[in-house]
């Protein structure tokens, strides 16, 4: 069962271990993570809404534009949630600012990526060694 009183909070809670394969599953996973640590309400319920939107957009991008979802991790900290979404494509989200060597960008419906950028405190796009990329973001919950 869940060692609810153990630390750190990374990925603990109901649903841990079951692979996230859809945006809906990712939202449920994050909701469960927050519930397991009593972080569902608090002074800023809007923050949870923003988190769910970001989760949904990130996973959707991986599935629709990233040649498939390769992994999804959510880590709860005091200040918010760190998300890492891995996909199989080297193509970067449109309008990503990089230093060069851009392999190519992909088109989205135009609203998902700006939403992510607007709602996250930080957004980092990392190439993965075997191909594809990891998008790491931090969504504040304070």
């Amino acid at each position: 069962m869940n060692p609810a009183n153990s630390t750190p909070a990374a990925d603990r809670g109901p649903g841990t271990g079951a692979a996230v394969t859809s945006a809906a599953a990712a939202r449920d996973h994050v909701r469960a993570l927050l519930r397991a640590h009593g972080r569902t309400g608090g002074p800023n319920p809007d923050a949870v809404i923003d988190l769910l939107l970001v989760v949904s957009e990130l996973v959707t991008n991986a599935i629709r534009h990233g040649d498939g979802l390769a992994g999804f991790d959510a880590t709860l900290t005091d200040a918010g949630v760190r998300l890492a979404v891995r996909d199989h494509s080297d193509a970067l989200p449109a309008r990503t600012h990089t230093t060069g060597g851009i392999p190519g960008t992909h088109r989205t419906n135009g609203y998902g990526w700006p939403l992510i950028v607007r709602l996250c405190d930080s957004v980092v796009v990392e190439p993965r060694p075997g191909g594809g990329k990891t998008i790491r973001v931090f969504v504040p919950l304070a």
């Binding site: 945006a23 939202r27 949904s56 957009e57 419906n109 609203y111 998902g112």
Partner: peptide, 9 residues
């Protein structure tokens, strides 16, 4: 209850 940018399109 929930909608993301997919509905906007």
């Amino acid at each position: 209850d929930f909608a993301d940018s997919s509905i906007l399109h």
